[in-house]
Amino acid sequence: MTRLTDIEDMIARMALGDRRALSALYDATSAKLFGVALRVLNDRSEAEDALQEIYVKLWRNADRYRVNGLSPMTWLITVARNHAIDRLRARRASRAAPIHEAAEVADGAPNPEEAMLAAAERGRIGACLGTLPPDRADAIRRAYLGGEAYADLSRRYGVPLNTVRTWLRRGLLKLRECMAS
């Protein structure tokens, strides 16, 4: 069984151009992502084509993934779902579907269940961040949610760059432990 940290590692290695990481990610996640594409497209052949395009998209955009305490599968599934929805829209547009069929196409927004799960996950992350010292929690928010550079954090907190890196690494480890419990 592949752990979520293994998937994060594969994505990070893909961002550096590691083709073996792409192959490993495909082996670990293709069944799930194929299921997502098949559910949206309702056509096995088209879902298979979409799956290949999804992994090309993941390869090209691996550098956009940010470790943020959420499951990396959430990101992968979102990419797969959005790609399948785009294919579905393109297919329907090419048929010039009547206006009443256009309402059947998903808008890409999370459904109520997904929104509820995401809100619960955000709440858990907030609670776990609350267990960290305030400056460490703030640094994690600024780095991983705000995109602030480590050097900027170093200046903001008046500590050496390596100290910021240590804060972030240890803080993420504590967050992972908290989220797993």
Rank of each mutant, 00 (worst) to 15 (best):
D27E: 14
S181M: 09
Q52H: 11
G17K: 11
R155A: 09
G171M: 04
L175M: 06
A137N: 00
R20G: 11
P134Y: 00
A118N: 10
T74R: 02
Y26V: 05
P133Q: 01
R60V: 11
R91F: 10
R87E: 15
R64G: 04
A21Q: 08
S181Y: 06
Q52S: 12
A143Q: 11
Y150M: 11
R142T: 06
R169F: 12
R92K: 12
A102I: 09
N61R: 15
P133Y: 00
A90L: 13
V105D: 10
A15D: 11
A96V: 07
L41N: 05
R95E: 12
G126K: 05
V105K: 06
E114T: 08
V56S: 05
A127H: 13
A21L: 07
A127S: 11
Y144C: 08
L22S: 14
D86W: 06
G146K: 06
A151E: 14
L4P: 00
G130C: 02
E8P: 13
G171T: 03
D49S: 07
G108T: 10
A93K: 14
N111Q: 09
A143N: 15
R39C: 12
R19C: 12
D49I: 04
P160W: 02
K57W: 12
R165Q: 12
M73Y: 10
S30K: 02
I7K: 04
R13F: 10
Y26N: 03
V159F: 06
Y150G: 05
I77E: 14
A80F: 03
K174D: 08
A180L: 08
R155V: 13
A96P: 01
A180Y: 01
G69W: 00
L4S: 09
N82I: 04
L16E: 15
W167M: 02
L33C: 01
A47L: 04
I7A: 01
K174H: 05
A120W: 08
W75L: 03
L129V: 00
A180T: 07
E53A: 13
T78N: 04
P112I: 11
A119I: 12
L172S: 11
L88F: 11
L51V: 11
N162V: 12
A15M: 14
E114F: 01
E48V: 06
V56I: 15
M73F: 10
A93P: 05
D43A: 10
R44M: 07
A28L: 00
K174V: 03
A15H: 13
R20C: 09
G108C: 08
G126Q: 09
A127L: 09
N61I: 07
W75I: 05
D27M: 10
L117Q: 14
L22H: 01
N61K: 15
R170G: 00
W75A: 03
N82Y: 07
L25S: 06
A31E: 07
R155E: 01
R89G: 09
R141Q: 08
D18A: 13
E113Y: 11
I54T: 00
D43W: 03
G130E: 01
G146H: 08
R81I: 12
R3K: 11
D49P: 05
M14G: 03
G108P: 12
A24F: 02
P160A: 08
R169W: 07
L4Y: 08
D9E: 14
H83T: 09
G123I: 05
E8S: 14
L4D: 14
A12S: 15
V40D: 00
R124N: 09
S154Y: 08
A139R: 01
I85M: 13
R170K: 08
K174E: 10
A149Y: 10
A15V: 13
E48G: 08
